[in-house]
Amino acid sequence: MNFWEYLSNRHQQLLTDAYQHASAVFQCMVAATVIGVLIGIVAYRTEWGASLATTATSTILTIPSLAMIGLLIPIVGLGVPPTVIALTLYGLLPIVRNSIVGLRGVDPSLVDAATGIGMSRLMRLVRVELPLAWPPILTGIRVSTQMLMGIAAIAAYASGPGLGNEIFRGIGSLGSKNALNQVLAGTLGIIILALLFDAAYVLIGRLTISRGIRA
């Protein structure tokens, strides 16, 4: 069976896996974005807060993904929970770091002006600081997403969802006639998903970054 025959035979299964992969990454990204930006907002004002947040999130990133999921299994069990927790944690670093960099990069005289014309702290954050920090934050989200696409494949190790299952099945049955096809299908599927997500981010950027600050 060549690769194309394999694809047409298994397209149902592959599409389901791809959908679950994308859906897992998407949901974890939403969670990571919300948590990451919140951490950034809490941390950016103080030097020690910012370095604490960056160091903590980058430490998480140094844990090998297989080990992380392995460690989570005894705590939360198999399947979706370890996948979601691991992916969300991995996704944090670029978002936290770029949120801090973005929020700190806002011209202090603009913050001064915002306060001076009578904005409350929350209003200043929502109307001025976050919109101006948004381009770097969005870049962080893009980087995170691409990273998570790859890491999500490991989730299959914990019986998680996604295209990782194809790859693991292929690796597990090396030598059989479909092994290579499985690994290839899983890998290419992940690459295509990553490209689609990236295209979506370009579109989101167009729609959400004000014309006044777009490069």
């Binding site: 603009l110 001064d112 002006a113 001025v128 101006l132 006044g212 600050i213």
Partner: peptide, 10 residues
């Protein structure tokens, strides 16, 4: 203020 302090995204 100096250099107007206009919000560039508005």
């Amino acid at each position: 203020i100096q250099s107007a302090g206009l919000f560039p995204h508005m």
